[in-house]
Design a protein around this nucleic acid. Structure first.
Length: 208
DNA sequence: ATGTCGATTTGCT
DNA sequence: GCAAATCGACATA
């Protein structure tokens, strides 16, 4: 268990700038989402579940068909920035913006396996034991890592929120692809198998 | 163990 | 007005 920062390589800008949001979503599994701000303890967890969204023909995407609002504006900027928004008025959901400027793709991080700064994560969550309830959902992981809407637009190549490659190899056979959660309003696009999770290691959100 | 329901911002109709 | 990329409290079994 690390208490120190950075035990892997921070993913570079080039990782995020690519034009293939589903491939990047798969590659994020096994990477480590890390936070360190306000002098608080470093916290990190391994990404075990993601969902891909693209403005290009995906009705489930907030920026579908070039829809620009105050909220979606960040998705139209270059990859490697944080898109954090409030869901149901209470939950702060964290997304990674990908692709080039003008191409609005994003990846929702849905679940983490807590790794570093676990005591602080438990404290932020108001939990006593380390289990799935600590970061096994998109609203839970942001609370565990201290991510809120004030982190909207944070550069993921910086030192507040970043993603590390710690050399964990993920066998493609261990990845389950299925429909995304809670996007019934998207019609046919709700059926796209763009939710990716590590076949149950016990840390993801609910099964398909 | 499973089900219902409320919290409460943002954006669309 | 209402539904939303959700979660936890509380009810009932």
């Amino acid at each position: 268990m690390n208490t120190d920062r950075r035990s892997g390589e921070t993913l570079p800008r080039s990782f995020y700038l690519r034009d293939n949001v589903t491939a990047i979503s798969r590659e994020l599994l096994g990477k480590y989402l890390c936070t360190s701000f306000n002098g608080e303890p470093f916290t990190a967890g391994m990404i075990v579940e993601t969902e891909a969204y693209t403005a290009d023909g995906d009705r489930a995407c907030h920026a579908y068909n070039g829809r620009r609002t105050e909220r979606t504006e960040i998705m139209f900027r270059r990859g490697g920035l944080a898109y954090v928004y409030l869901c149901y008025g209470i939950h702060h959901l964290f997304n990674v913006v990908t692709n080039a400027k003008g191409e609005a793709d994003a990846i929702l991080v849905r679940a983490l396996k807590p790794a570093d700064g676990v005591a602080r994560m438990l404290q932020r969550r108001g939990k006593a034991k380390l289990n799935r309830q600590v970061a096994g959902g998109p609203g839970m992981l942001t609370q565990a890592l201290g991510i809120k809407t004030n982190h909207y637009g944070t550069d993921l190549t910086g030192d507040k929120i970043w993603i590390e490659d710690r050399g964990v190899e993920i066998d493609e056979k261990l990845i389950t692809a299925g429909p995304r959660v809670g996007v019934d309003y998207a019609g046919e696009d709700a059926l796209l198998p763009w939710r990716f999770r590590l076949t149950d290691g016990g840390w993801t959100s609910k099964p398909d």
